[in-house]
């Protein structure tokens, strides 16, 4: 025993020098935590002030220098939404956006070489109040999210759950936002010249934003023991489909909610693709912003941007609510 004691001692023998912190070390011990907090606060303030400022400015009558002045008004919002009483130059928008309904709705080329074309009998011009048009464009991006869910959730599941040849390749392509919107837009125009804008926009949005959906859902799936959960459900008598719909998908709820919010927001803000592809029909959101920002006074642009904020917040809340309440199908009431 005694021999072991001396052994142990020899290992830790020698003086451990008492630590003498440097001047900097003492300062950092005293103020470090506070300094970091202040720095973070400043950074956040720096980023958030323009947003708050823009939102607030949109309710003022004038802008003097960089500060809003004059009384409070809703005029800017009304102008942006096209519901102001006629005030002269509204850049031909009136209170309406003008949509031209597509004259060709559908082209189907049969294998025999026959073409089946469904047409509108004549060009129709549809006048839509801008708030309604904005609603359409919210819907455009939402449809993109729906396509993303239908395609993205199974992809995320497949690459997490199974090993198959080409799995890594699928994974890479599904999660890399490779194609810029402008390139995809031109490719769409060239390849499907007759495709109605609505369909092109929805498909384009889903294609461009699917990586965000797949990534979010995949991280949810990765935290689940997919194989065993699936096997438990099947041993309890659920078919594969029932298992997928009632157990697997609801289990990835959080990922699906956040993936939907991210891909919707990005689709709504996607300018390049929308600008190139859009020709007629409900106008995308980003073009609404573009029209109000270019060649307009700042306050009207501010109002348009504020409208965008409000819609983003509303849709985010909606998606969150639907997500939190829409998965009770799997439960037992």
């Amino acid at each position: 025993m005694s021999s072991r004691d001396t052994d142990t001692q020899s290992i830790v023998s020698g003086d451990v020098p008492s630590r003498e912190p440097s001047r900097l070390g003492r300062l950092s011990a005293r103020f470090g935590r506070r300094a970091v907090t202040v720095l973070i606060g400043l950074t956040i303030a720096f980023l958030i002030v323009p947003v708050v400022f823009t939102f607030a400015a949109s309710f003022f009558e004038n802008l003097t220098g960089i500060l809003p002045s004059g009384g409070l008004t809703l005029q800017n919002w009304k102008l942006a939404l096209g519901i102001a009483e006629s005030q002269g130059a509204q850049r031909g928008l009136g209170g309406f956006w003008t949509f031209v309904a597509p004259d060709i709705l559908f082209v189907l080329t049969l294998p025999s070489g026959l073409e089946y074309v469904l047409r509108f009998p004549y060009d129709v011009t549809i006048q839509t109040p801008i708030p309604v048009a904005l609603g359409f464009s919210v819907l455009l991006a939402l449809l993109g999210v729906v396509v993303n869910l239908i395609v993205g959730v199974p992809i995320a599941y497949a690459v997490t759950r199974y090993t198959f040849p080409g799995r890594r390749l699928v994974n890479t392509f599904a999660i890399l936002p490779i194609v810029p919107g402008i390139i995809l837009g031109i490719a769409f125009l060239k390849t499907y010249p007759d495709l109605p804008s609505v369909i092109a926009l929805v498909l384009g949005y889903s294609l461009l934003k699917i990586p965000y959906m797949v990534l979010a859902v995949q991280s949810s799936f990765e935290s689940m023991d997919l194989r065993r959960i699936e096997e438990s459900a099947r041993s309890l008598g659920a078919s594969w489909t029932t298992t997928f719909v009632r157990v697997i998908v609801p289990g990835a709820k959080q990922g699906i909610i956040s993936g939907s919010i991210i891909s919707w927001t990005l689709a709504a803000a996607e300018f390049n693709f929308s600008y190139i592809v859009y020709s007629r029909g409900p106008r995308p959101f980003s073009l609404f912003l573009f029209e109000n920002i270019s060649n307009n006074p700042f306050l009207r642009a501010a109002a348009a941007i504020s409208i965008y904020f409000v819609i983003v917040v509303a849709v985010t809340a909606l998606l969150n609510w639907v997500g939190e309440n829409g998965f009770s199908v799997g439960g037992v009431q």
Partner: peptide, 19 residues
């Protein structure tokens, strides 16, 4: 498996988290 009437218990519990 879904027609065999077997009960499975796993190390990882594999409970359905949405329920």
């Amino acid at each position: 498996p879904e027609q065999r009437d077997v009960g499975l218990v796993f190390q990882s519990y594999a409970l359905f988290e949405n329920m």
